[in-house]
Design a protein around this nucleic acid. Structure first.
Lengths: 202, 202
DNA sequence: TGACAAAAAGCACGATCGTTCGTAATACTC
DNA sequence: GAGTATTACGAACGATCGTGCTTTTTGTCA
């Protein structure tokens, strides 16, 4: 009982790596078994189906994201500082992360947007929750009087997420060395435009 | 010689559809042959390799994008009106388009960001060109005195592209009914912040 | 230590993948 | 309409895919 759980976790760790470069569909049981020096069938029995494996990988990715981005950001002060922490850690998560292929959740978003099934459903759930989390952080910033009361939280969340997606694109596909700077500047412009008494935007 | 070219084009059209939902990697020659009611080998001989097929599909997608987004936007007046036209048509292209799976170029961007090869190289080329095109349009808007002279064209291009990526995400994965409105509001905020004498941003 | 449960391996399956090759059918040119 | 170049097909290949089943190995606990 104990051994099984241990190898299961080991498998999932390497599955996360593999899926981050190959995608959740490209994640193949044969190659995954090879990487873990075990048989296909031995590995397979831990998950019951490929979809089960995908769901577990997604769950692991979500847990890691929360642990590396969301949770530590909660230690920042409510309002703008917390939003700033969320953004910074989110960016770090994308490139620094041990995963060679960047953020699995972002890759999966593009991959699964037209693939119905339980995996897509689970991903949509996670992404919706995240959008809500961001909007909530914006609402707090309004309460704290860091942001103007007429700032639209879901819109701000959309804009924030968009910047991160732009960063992912510029950094990972284009290998643009200015990606980080641009993303930060876009973030500053966005935050600046939401502040109570606004000065210059750019 | 004529017949061959005709079927080749027909194949590519349906390949574009298939690739928009399944991705360029998920695009399989067997299924594609089935869709076109012909044999695998007959279809295959038109492209020589799967990579050749992918490159041709990419080329077709690029041509269509230019024809449906870039070229008509050139008919708009130089400066802000043209940028507005680019943005609007870009958004239209993403969802309205005959392709069931949205913009292939965007899907491929996430799919190929860690897959070295000729296909990735070609895509990067296209995406870099597009970023340049956007920046050029911004520079024109500065020349026309629609935008402030201190607006950073590549940064503005980054922000614009980011909004579109955010739209793609919200619309195609989350099926968010507010995606279009949010994208447009984000665009207005961006343009507003770039205008010569700036009024309210949001 | 021996009994029992859990985990891993082995083997095979049907399907599909991209690709090659030889041949049949078709379209184009004179 | 004959001759030729082009286009398409059929069959097969080795590889890999996800997934069962059965057996062997391994870990756990009384």
């Amino acid at each position: 009982m104990r051994k099984g759980e241990a190898t299961r976790e080991r498998i999932l760790e390497s599955a996360l790596e593999l899926a981050s470069t190959e995608g959740l569909t490209g994640l193949s049981i044969g190659r995954l078994a090879e990487r873990n020096a075990m048989s296909k069938s031995g590995l397979f029995s831990h998950f019951g189906s490929k979809e089960g494996l995908q769901l577990d990988v997604l769950e692991l990715a979500t847990a890691k994201f929360r642990e590396r981005v969301f949770t530590p950001a909660l230690r920042a002060d409510r309002g703008e500082p917390r939003i700033r922490a969320l953004f910074t850690r989110w960016l770090d998560w994308i490139d620094h992360q041990s995963l060679p292929g960047g953020c699995l959740l972002t890759a999966a978003a593009a991959e699964l947007d037209d693939q119905p099934g339980a995996t897509r459903d689970a991903l949509v759930d996670v992404q919706r929750q995240w959008a809500d989390t961001l909007a909530r952080a914006v609402r707090i910033a309004i309460e704290e009087r860091h942001f103007r009361p007429d700032v639209d939280p879901p819109l701000f969340a959309f804009q924030l997420h968009a910047i991160v997606l732009g960063y992912h694109h510029a950094r990972r596909l284009l290998r643009d060395p200015h990606a980080g700077r641009r993303a930060r500047e876009a973030f500053e412009a966005l935050v600046g435009s939401a502040r109570r008494r606004k000065g210059r935007v750019a």
